[in-house]
């Protein structure tokens, strides 16, 4: 198990929490909470060690597109980058639907 931390510059605050995904093999859950901080903070717990660069790659692209200012808690159970991307997209949809 590995714990990863990332910070990103972000401008778009959120006003309510969002929870997508599930605790299941090959999947992940993503929790977004409003924050008072200046940017986005991510805490990732992953069962698959040694993928820091892969995460960075996925997240760079995500924050380029969605500069969401929030606290991100991600619990990963061996999801593929494709599943990670889609869960993050789903979190954006959930934000949009409820606003």
């Amino acid at each position: 198990m590995e714990k990863l931390h990332f910070n990103y510059k972000a401008t778009q605050p959120i006003d309510h929490p969002v929870h997508v995904g599930v605790v299941a093999s090959g999947d992940l859950e993503v929790l977004l909470r409003p924050t008072d901080k200046d940017g986005a903070e991510l805490a990732i717990v992953t069962g698959s060690d040694g993928f820091k660069e892969t995460w960075e790659h996925v997240l760079d692209r995500f924050f380029d597109r969605y500069p969401i200012k929030a606290n991100f808690e991600i619990n990963d159970f061996g999801a593929t980058p494709g599943v990670v991307n889609l869960r993050l997209t789903q979190a954006m949809e959930a934000l949009k639907d409820e606003q």
Binding site: V20, G21, Q90, A94
Partner: peptide
């Protein structure tokens, strides 16, 4: 797809894993 996600109904769409990658 995950039965837990289907049961929870937290989001309008459910993630489905396919041979061509995941879809909603």
């Amino acid at each position: 797809f995950s039965l837990e996600e289907y049961a929870a109904q937290r989001t309008a769409e459910i993630l489905v894993k396919t041979n061509e990658g995941p879809i909603l």
